[in-house]
């Protein structure tokens, strides 16, 4: 564990609490992509199968359980509790285009050709692109509530912090995880456009609006 990873994980936690706060206080999941949230559930379920056979640490264990539980809870809120506030006609990204290639990539690029390892690699690739339906929705509506942008910013910060974490680990532990690093850099790159608008508009007190 190092400071970058700890802060990254805390940003990830923060993003989930921001999202829950947004849904609970506005009593609405407007502006949130159900598809992206469903993909995160799949990401956590496929990545954390090692909960059953590989103990890392109490921290690791608690966080994994929390990510699985909270992502399922968010899905429940969107699907049942606040269902009428979700507009499927805006959430139209075809996730088949993400699931298929990620699965094929996981079959080809993995550390060991066995179920848990293929699922792990799949989850890494899928997490990298899971934000697409959300960004696509943002692009379609062209604007977002401030709190939704804070949620996305926290998610982006979490990913960005994992990069110095890998650099740090390379120098201190000699460890490199090429699958996680390549996918992680791609994933962080997807946030660059968003970050640009977030820093130049939202943090200056303006509304999040994309140029027409």
């Amino acid at each position: 564990m190092n400071l970058f990873r700890l802060l990254g994980d805390l940003a990830h936690l923060a993003s989930i609490f921001i999202l829950l706060h947004k849904i609970q206080t506005t009593r609405s999941c407007r502006g949130i992509s159900f598809k992206t949230q469903a993909l995160y559930v799949l990401v956590f379920l496929t990545r954390y199968v090692d909960l059953f056979f590989h103990w890392v640490s109490l921290y690791n264990f608690v966080m994994k359980i929390f990510f699985i539980a909270s992502s399922c809870y968010i899905l429940y809120l969107m699907k049942y509790r606040f269902r009428p506030t979700h507009d499927p006609s805006l959430d139209t990204f075809k996730i088949e285009y993400l699931l298929g290639p990620c699965f094929v990539l996981a079959l080809i690029f993995n550390y060991h050709f066995e179920l848990a390892e293929v699922l792990w690699a799949f989850s890494i690739y899928l997490e990298a692109v899971a934000i697409f339906p959300q960004l696509f929705m943002l692009q379609r509506t062209g604007e977002a509530e401030a709190i939704t942008t804070h949620y996305l910013a926290a998610l982006g910060v979490y990913r960005a912090l994992y990069i110095p974490n890998w650099i740090y680990r390379y120098f201190t532990e000699g460890v490199v995880d090429p699958i996680a690093v390549v996918a992680g850099i791609v994933q962080t790159g997807l946030y660059l456009d968003f970050f640009y608008v977030y820093f130049t508009k939202v943090l200056q007190g303006q509304k999040f609006e994309l140029p027409a």
Binding site: D50, H54, V56, S57, M63, Y111, H112, E117, N165, V176
Partner: peptide
């Protein structure tokens, strides 16, 4: 050697 036991990140 691939970091088989190295899935210690979230």
């Amino acid at each position: 050697e691939a970091p088989k036991d190295n899935h210690d990140e979230l």
